[in-house]
Design a protein around this nucleic acid. Sequence first.
DNA 1: TCGCATTGGTTGACGCGACAACTGAATTGG
DNA 2: CCAATTCAGTTGTCGCGTCAACCAATGCGA
Lengths: 173, 173
Amino acid sequence: MSADTRWLSTEESAAWVRLVALAELLPGALDAQLLRDAGLTHFEYVALMALAEAPDRTMRMTELASRTNATLPRLSHVARRLEERGLIRRFPCPTDRRATNATITEAGLQLIADAAPGHVETVRASVLDVLTPEQLEQLYAIAGAVLARLDPDGRLTATSCQFSEGPAVARAG
Amino acid sequence: MSADTRWLSTEESAAWVRLVALAELLPGALDAQLLRDAGLTHFEYVALMALAEAPDRTMRMTELASRTNATLPRLSHVARRLEERGLIRRFPCPTDRRATNATITEAGLQLIADAAPGHVETVRASVLDVLTPEQLEQLYAIAGAVLARLDPDGRLTATSCQFSEGPAVARAG
DNA sequence: TCGCATTGGTTGACGCGACAACTGAATTGG
DNA sequence: CCAATTCAGTTGTCGCGTCAACCAATGCGA
């Protein structure tokens, strides 16, 4: 154990404290709005959105877990609840009988289509609209660098949980 | 309901996805290291550190909750566990008999003193050391802007959970 | 000084996520 | 072609955080 710890400078400490506060408060804010307006956790929303954007609206559990930065047990629990609510369906994969495929139902598509505008509004109000275009780019780079450390193998880091030109639902519906 | 939702641009979506992934993965990483090496949640660590740095190593529950971005019920539960472990003590405030004061014990001071180097090491390895000084400044500004939205009244946003020149424990012990 | 709203804090119930254990299917090595 | 390992997924248990309800003390208005 090295006794020569490099303690944090004032600037480092200040930035770190704010990042920690952000990481603490952001998830709660997202959950609060979505639960209130759509009865969905932010994680559930992201999972449903990922399915909606997938080919055939279907994805393997493992891949869905990767795309949503979740462990497999966690996804399994969430999938059971979503299935009980009729928002997704699960069925064994025909080519690999170990695997399970999940598909979003019409009810699920409808729900996220209804939830999307309010969610995007919240994301804009709480984050995107308070940043300049340069800051947006900086955030992209900074988060990318940190994620490279937190998820070295890059197996996680969902590539998409939003939309550039409207929800996939609109195109797929 | 305004039907004219401003969907996310490609740049916005990319930055947002990374921020969400960061907020999802960072807390788990911090908890994992601290639990493994010190048997403490990151939240418990922050709370103990706040007490260690407070005058008389004592703070009102309400203020401690503010400084740690926590709700009062959450802090109350955590405080009970910490007290059962002998890391803090609670006693009624003499001047306001509604209030409760919390004090960190010697055992608590010892524990965070032991835990601090490893934690700082993790913070450096996963975040600080992968950012340039400019990025550190950018992160400070970006997180500040977002926090102003998430916590408009500014009641939360702990001002310190780290140290510029070594842990307060060293000075106070 | 009485009545009422507010503040400070605790408690209990519930839901979600982590972890470990487990099942069954596929792969690999001899 | 069988044994051992790995992979995909589910389930049960436990701990933590949220919410609502609650109690006690304080402040405040009339």
